[in-house]
């Protein structure tokens, strides 16, 4: 554990809190992509299958995995029941079949090992790297986003971005660490997908302006 990974995980927790807070206080999930949320649940379920099989890592790991799966399921529950009337499927139209298919192909072509668990882990890593696309696509369609929604997207993106210095740190100082090539490549790709958003967030939202596309 190093400072970058700790901040990354913290950022992930904060993103969950912001999203639930936004929905609860505004009694609405407008501007939030249901499709992205479904993809994140698929990501966590497939990645954390090892809760039931692999040797126990740490209380921290187990607790965080349960929090990520549970909060993701809860978000979907809220969006499909209480706040369903505030969701507009007409602007949430990204074709997620391609993301699911592409991630599966990548996982089948380059799994860390040829086992179901390792393929499902790789699938979840690739899928996570693109799971934000329906959300970003929705922001692009409407041309703007509520400030609180942009805080959510930023915190979620910062999680993987912070893992990049974490990997460099581990590579340099943690002799026991194995380099997870798939996670590193997918993490870099994910951060690249976010770069445009990060730029606008930094130049507009951080200066108190509304998130608006040029």
């Amino acid at each position: 554990m190093n400072i970058f990974r700790m901040l990354g995980d913290l950022s992930h927790l904060i993103s969950i809190f912001i999203l639930l807070h936004k929905m609860q206080t505004s009694k609405s999930c407008s501007g939030v992509s249901f499709k992205s949320q479904v993809l994140y649940l698929v990501v966590y379920v497939f990645r954390y299958l090892d809760l039931f099989t692999n040797p126990f890592m740490s209380y921290y790991n187990t607790l965080m995995k349960i929090v990520f799966i549970a909060s993701s399921a809860y978000t979907i529950y809220l969006m499909s029941t209480v706040f369903k009337p505030t969701h507009d499927p007409a602007i949430d139209t990204f074709k997620i079949e391609y993301l699911l298919g592409g991630s599966l192909v990548m996982a089948l072509l380059f799994p860390p090992k040829w086992t179901f668990m390792e393929i499902s882990w790789a699938f979840s890593i690739w899928l996570e790297s693109v799971a934000i696309l329906p959300q970003l696509f929705m922001v692009q369609r409407t041309g703007e986003a509520e400030t609180i929604t942009t805080h959510y997207i930023f915190a979620l993106g910062a999680y993987r971005a912070l893992y990049i210095p974490n990997w460099i740190w581990r590579y340099m100082f943690d002799k026991k660490a194995k380099l997870e090539t798939i996670a590193v490549v997918a993490g870099l790709a994910q951060t690249l997908l976010y770069s445009d958003f990060f730029y606008i967030y930094w130049t507009k939202v951080m200066k108190g302006k509304k998130f608006q596309l040029p």
Binding site: D50, N54, K65
Partner: peptide, 10 residues
Amino acid sequence: AATPEGHDEL
């Protein structure tokens, strides 16, 4: 103790 197999990040 043996290092557990698997992925130790989230």
